[in-house]
Design a protein around this nucleic acid. Structure first.
Lengths: 238, 238
DNA sequence: AAAATAGTGTCTTTAAGACAATATAAA
DNA sequence: TTTATATTGTCTTAAAGACACTATTTT
């Protein structure tokens, strides 16, 4: 049943939504915007928008990232998740969305772009457990995206993507602890990171927090795959 | 630029394609159909078709599976892959496709359905290396799907999905060897499978091949996740 | 007995788990 | 010297890698 004249039965609107995570104040945060347009006007939602006829979905995600959020620094789009396609997920017309996951280092706060009234970092757990209401089925997308990031920490070195250009092993451990929601043994964690070639490389420099022994600073080490993987314990699994 | 009157700029056709794998004659095979419709009429392609306005993409994939292939027995749709969305991937109009991966036990040959002239199992490596030509960007989809299955053998127990209802440890090892393209040590493989609770469960029965000691028969053991994972060696990685 | 296939056992090596002690800075 | 944080070390345990031998069937 076409809803507009000339529209074929199979024609569908395609959007892309981006779940951008960072670590702020010891919590995993996801970037949400306050929608300027209907439906769900003034409601919180993931940044995103329509895929145009002359661009692929990845290009659309990149474009929306800039238009709506003015994300500062290096934001790393990781992967595409399973599309959301339930026929009534948009109350007005048939829309399928292609979700992406991205991670950003803990830097400054992004500014609202042209299509958004406001841009904020929101506690990801709050979105998943429902205490923060979001538009459409974006709660499910955030849940899928969070689980995707959790799983990727096991088998890849993307945890460095949450860190600034230079970071300590303690910073990196905090990423794992925050995303997985568990505590890790600092001794075993150091051994794992430093014995995995390509995970990090030393800078020679060190960083003083004012008190205590200064920590050595490292950079991301080029290797993308973590082998053998760093496995979560049973309690930290979804 | 709308191509039909009343069509909005953002309206896009959405299809789904299914890469169904099985193991036949010692090779990883993918199910292809010979297309009845244009474009690429009479060419080999993955089974698939348009997503209708009242169904989600998974339902569309299930429906197409029946319409085009009459797949016998239990075919297990595993996962959705990253969509293909390059604007010119379909020569006529804008089409985004949502690919799925499925595995089927080595059983009988499927029959062609209403939308296909022919249905055949084709060597997956031949499709990926280009010696078998396929329509659209289906070569890339088969490549992605094959890598997805290879990776899933590491961390899940889906290898049993390639086997008949009852199978031997040797059958299961052949699945790993065929999909990964390497040889595995039978002793270490047996130890891994039998020491992983929930991977397989014994039936008590045994199967005689006519010559040699009969092999014990097992069934899939309920557990879906393989922990710790069975990791590929470096040579068998994509 | 010979041939063919299935299944089991041991030693080594790697890496994670579970622990406490030492090092380096500022106050 | 006290306090705070970073870093290193050892013993144990789990599991994979690399091997050869025994078991059960048919011919």
């Amino acid at each position: 049943m076409a809803e507009r004249p000339g529209m074929l039965d199979e024609d569908i609107r395609v959007t892309t939504d981006i779940a951008i995570f960072t670590i702020l104040e010891g919590h995993l945060k996801v970037l949400l915007i306050r929608r300027r347009d209907t439906p769900f006007r003034n409601k919180l939602a993931l940044p995103g928008g329509h895929v145009r006829r002359n661009e692929d979905v990845k290009s659309a995600a990149d474009r929306e990232l800039g238009e709506e959020t003015n994300i500062p620094g290096k934001t790393l789009i990781l992967d595409q998740l399973a599309v959301k396609s339930e026929p009534k997920r948009d109350p007005r017309t048939r829309v399928i969305t292609v979700p992406f996951v991205a991670i950003a280092p803990d830097v400054s706060t992004p500014k609202a772009g042209s299509d958004a009234l406001e841009v904020t970092w929101v506690d990801a757990d709050g979105v998943v457990d429902g205490s923060v209401k979001v538009a459409f089925d974006h709660r499910e997308i955030v849940r899928d995206a969070r689980e995707h990031v959790r799983a990727k920490l096991e088998s890849t070195t993307i945890a460095t993507g949450f860190c600034a250009d230079e970071f300590t092993i303690g910073d990196l451990r905090t990423v794992y602890e925050t995303v997985w929601g568990i505590q890790l043994d600092p001794r075993n964690f150091n051994r794992k990171v430093l014995h995995t070639i390509g995970f990090v490389k030393p800078t020679g420099k060190q960083r003083s927090t004012g008190l205590g022994r200064p920590a050595m600073l490292y950079r991301a080490g080029g290797e993308k795959i973590l082998r053998p993987p760093m496995l979560r314990t049973e309690e930290s699994r979804g």
